[in-house]
Computed example of a mutant assay.
Amino acid sequence: METIKYIERASGELRTENVPSEGMLKWLYSTGSGKVALNLLFKRKIVSDLGGWYMNTKLSAKRIPEFVNEHKINLNECQISDVAKFETFNSFFYRKLQKNARPIEENIVSPADGKILAFQTINDVSAFFVKGSEFTLTSFLRKHELAKKYEDGAMAIIRLAPADYHRFHFPASGKVSASKAINGHYFSVSPLALQGSLKIFCENYREYCILSNQDYGDILISDVGATMVGSIIQTYTANSEIEKGDEKGYFAFGGSTLVLLFEKGKVNFDEDLLSNTKKGFETTIRMGEQIAFAKFK
């Protein structure tokens, strides 16, 4: 497997990602024995449940200082800046930020911190992933009519690494539906795993809701679980009016992903995100940064 490179949005600099548990992931996703172990054990919910259980124990809190130092996490932007005040690793992992830590910009914004891929049409996906053709909306949503609604539409994938802020928010204002769950496994969504196939998104446990906005149409927001993500917690009120930037929920420990789907002809992604994606690179993004705008603007 190759190293993972991404583009820092602010500077345009090409960087190499530090992938946690890189050796283990390379073994699981690129060797015969690893793939056997992956399918027999690591993809199963019980493994993620056990990991989640440990991260909710007081013993796990001992890992926090090392994690902060290794990933250079800025504690000054957190509501709680003293690591000693977190009783468990998970309570630190889905920590809250101070109110103004993530300014909300114009138009459609990123729902989370992470690294983003932007595709103006679903057909562009196969050009990025080695086996992207295995990804279909029908297999992802498991509803033919819903998949038809977003056919030839735009799609964004926001990948959260373990070191990222793990609460996610709404990318626009509007009325939001209840979340619906789609059962699945718990494969890693690390870039080392996704190099093999985007089909992982069609196999992992996920939830989705629809955010209706007058300018942007019906935005489908899907929260995708992964290895060691013990749970996806929704904190919003279903069937309510929400404001852009309002909290939607959070992931427990592990890397995770958000997928945004837009109806055909409704939005344009920012040009730098499209350009970087076409070159084969993700782009760093922070919650609240603009990622797209209405097509008629």
Rank of each mutant, 00 (worst) to 15 (best):
T257F: 09
H185S: 14
P65M: 08
K45D: 13
D113H: 07
S30Y: 15
G225D: 11
L14D: 03
V259T: 12
E17G: 03
D49Q: 11
G288Q: 01
K297T: 05
M228Q: 03
D152R: 11
Y94T: 05
I64W: 09
I122P: 02
K99R: 10
F89A: 10
S212L: 06
N69W: 00
T138S: 10
K175D: 10
A178Q: 13
T121V: 04
G288A: 04
Y250F: 15
D49F: 08
E77W: 05
F187L: 15
G32W: 04
A37W: 08
N18E: 15
D223M: 10
P171C: 10
K266Q: 12
C202D: 14
E17D: 13
T284S: 15
D82K: 03
F119K: 01
K85M: 10
Y29R: 06
H185E: 15
I221T: 02
S11F: 08
S231W: 01
A156G: 04
S48I: 06
L28M: 12
H144V: 08
L137W: 05
Y165M: 08
P171N: 09
D215C: 09
D223F: 09
G225R: 02
N213V: 14
V224N: 04
E8I: 12
L50M: 13
E241W: 11
K175L: 05
L28Q: 03
I291T: 05
K99C: 01
S197F: 05
G230P: 06
